[in-house]
């Protein structure tokens, strides 16, 4: 197993989509891709995400590996597949800013790990609250780049509370990485510093154990 994890990680680091696909097909043979996802892919994406936090990998590597894995899963485990994980019912959004890389990385990582989630794209506070209420999601992941946008999360939390909505809010992005107290100050329920953290958050809100 350690060999497969190593080879798969190397394929992703080299941005070699062909080799990554070959490794997955070899592993899954004719069966479902889910065991590969759980036993290899999630572990590799997790280690790359955590490696970025430690300075072992660069963001471009996190992005490219997430994209390759997302494409793989789209091919072998399409959105409509019943094997996609629908718990927790979740969505992701980029609040106020136009810099969508962080959101895209988290979205790709979660989808590549078999999760289904709504993508609200770039939204402002009112639209985000409206979307959350309409979809009745259980967990919303909010990505920001700029400090003022991070502070806007408080408005989202307050408006949702006014409506009596008890959705869980997880936040991520540069301001939260630089100030580890900020997520509590804006009233979020969780913070993710890497795409790997987003995976752990999704799992914990789905009732999984960490």
């Amino acid at each position: 197993m350690a060999d497969i994890i190593k080879t798969f990680r190397e394929a992703l680091m080299a941005s070699n989509a062909e080799s990554a696909e070959k490794i997955m097909l070899e592993y899954k043979k004719q069966g479902s891709p889910l065991p590969f996802v759980e036993e290899v892919l999630v572990k590799v994406l997790d280690s790359i995400g955590s490696g970025w936090e430690k300075g072992d990998y660069a963001l471009s590597q996190v992005y490219m590996s997430g994209r390759i894995c997302e494409d793989l899963l789209d091919k072998y485990l399409p959105d409509e597949s019943e094997q996609r994980k629908n718990k927790p019912k979740m969505s992701i959004a980029l609040l106020n800013d136009y810099h969508s890389l962080g959101k895209k990385i988290v979205y790709s990582t979660l989808r590549a790990s078999g999760y289904h989630l709504h993508d609200y794209g770039r939204v402002e506070v009112e639209d985000l609250v409206e979307n959350i209420m309409e979809d009745q999601v259980e967990l919303v992941l909010i990505s920001v780049l700029m400090f003022p946008s991070a502070l806007q999360v408080k408005n989202v939390v307050n408006k949702l509370a006014d409506y009596g909505c008890n959705v869980k809010i997880a936040v991520g992005g540069a301001p939260f990485r630089l100030d580890h107290r900020l997520w509590r100050e804006v009233g979020a329920d969780a913070v993710g510093y890497t795409a790997a953290d987003a995976l752990h958050i999704a799992k914990s809100f789905a009732g999984g154990t960490e």
Binding site: S15, S60, Y63, M64, Y98, H99, S100, L101, K104
Partner: peptide, 15 residues
């Protein structure tokens, strides 16, 4: 180019 074309599109271009 992060502002000219978006970060993800730019990384796709580089690689």
């Amino acid at each position: 180019p992060v502002m000219q074309m978006g970060f993800d599109a730019y990384l796709d271009l580089i690689y």
